[in-house]
Design a protein around this nucleic acid. Structure first.
Lengths: 240, 240
DNA sequence: GCCGGATATTGACCCAGATCAATTCGACTT
DNA sequence: AAGTCGAATTGATCTGGGTCAATATCCGGC
């Protein structure tokens, strides 16, 4: 959870190019950028630490920056005029924030747990991107993945039952965390957040989880740790 | 509705670069590609005509091609194992199909009305794209827009009422067709398709439309033409 | 280890929208 | 113009998940 900040970034230009903590590393293009190009990236980068619950930016604010998440977890969300909230995604370290923006942010971003981001001023980042086609290609690939994921979520929200939604959510989390049978799934977000992500109420999330627990599909030692007894049954419940 | 096909494409290399019907034109990069580059694109392109209801490709099929829609309207959709269908988008002429694919198509595509697409073999298209950064950049911009639109739809499906969904759908259609107060909105898709897009049943779509009609927000001379009496009220109902 | 506010769970009841069931409409063909 | 069949509309009823309310549990700060 420690931040390397500007110094850490600068460090990337030397021998420790592939250091896991380096914010630049997080955009997963170290392999495709030469050290002097990493330096360029480092020059427009700044680390920022976020406490749990802290807002990174609000929906609708002018989009001056793009980010990579280097530690922790963020949630992205949209809110209707009358206050209904929809979480559009949870981000894990390595994820990039800034694919969907035009002039202003199309969603708000908030830390789920203590987190760190690496910020890049947008203008120079885009110029750099244009100068380095591999970076641009990497981002296009990420955009592709994000579109596919969004459409999976559209299917979930449009056509799945509450039970299937919870199962789908857990199954996707398992895949992202590489959790298998008997593994412990870390669920740092609240039940409210889960509900706002899968389009149900807190109570429904809680009820379905309790039910799956009673049925033996999973176990919940604490609300934020879920033991997966049968990944196969979970996937089956998810109606993929 | 007439197809120019291979000949039409080749024609783009000459003086008629910006002909509206040219399939290449549809990817909206004519301005950024030199005539000889257009020729390159034309060489890997082929026009294809689709009758209403005809399938362009199935979800899960190997993704050998990418497309641009040159006329008509397509719907993209995903289906659950037990047959529930979710439409993830309707495409209009100029739209590009192929941003979300890896090895296989992540959704099926079917013509809503008689349509034409321009097909590009994927392999050479991607090589061409890599050689022409402006094309790549154009696609990244399109991906951006698509992500933003998907998240808007996620908000709709996760948090809006049936009435708000129908209003949002109509309002979005008005914007795409540039229809204002008193304008005639063309609605070529069936009520079933609309329902499968906004996550409700046919009957609900019909009921809400009838209600909005009775309230004077709109009029329906025929099921596929909707007159917008008050775009303002429509937007208000949409809870943007 | 204990305390207190936030978070999670569980129960009872309700309602928006699904489901089931007729009509009605409209774009075809002949 | 009449006939046909799928699409759209409308009505009646049902139900999954929302809403409201009452505990129970967790976890951070002493």
């Amino acid at each position: 959870m420690d931040v390397r900040g500007g110094a850490g970034v600068a460090g990337c230009c030397g021998t420790s190019v592939d250091c896991a903590r380096c914010p630049v590393r997080a955009i997963a293009v170290c392999g495709s950028l030469a050290p002097e190009q990493l330096c360029e990236l480092a020059r427009i980068a700044a680390a920022r630490r976020l406490a749990a619950g802290q807002v990174l930016f609000d929906e609708g604010a002018p989009a001056h920056d793009v980010y990579t998440l280097t530690a922790g977890m963020l949630k992205l969300f949209k809110v209707t005029r009358d206050g209904r909230r929809q979480i559009t995604g949870f981000l894990l370290p390595g994820d990039f924030i800034g694919l969907a923006f035009a002039d202003s942010y199309v969603y708000g971003a908030e830390a789920v747990i203590n987190s760190e981001v690496c910020r890049f001023r947008r203008e120079p980042f885009e110029q750099l991107m244009h100068r380095h086609p591999r970076l641009e290609r990497d981002l296009l690939g990420r955009a592709s993945t994000e579109i596919a994921a969004a459409q999976e979520q559209i299917l979930l929200l449009g056509r799945k039952t509450a039970r299937e939604r919870v199962a789908s959510f857990l199954f996707a989390m398992c895949q992202r965390q590489n959790v298998g049978d008997g593994g412990q799934l870390q669920v740092p977000m609240s039940r409210l957040d889960i509900g706002d992500y899968i389009g149900t109420r807190v109570e429904t999330v809680s009820r379905v989880l309790s039910l799956l627990c009673r049925e033996g599909v999973l176990a919940m030692p604490t609300p934020h740790v879920i033991v997966i007894n049968s990944l196969r049954r979970l996937r089956q419940e998810a109606q993929p």
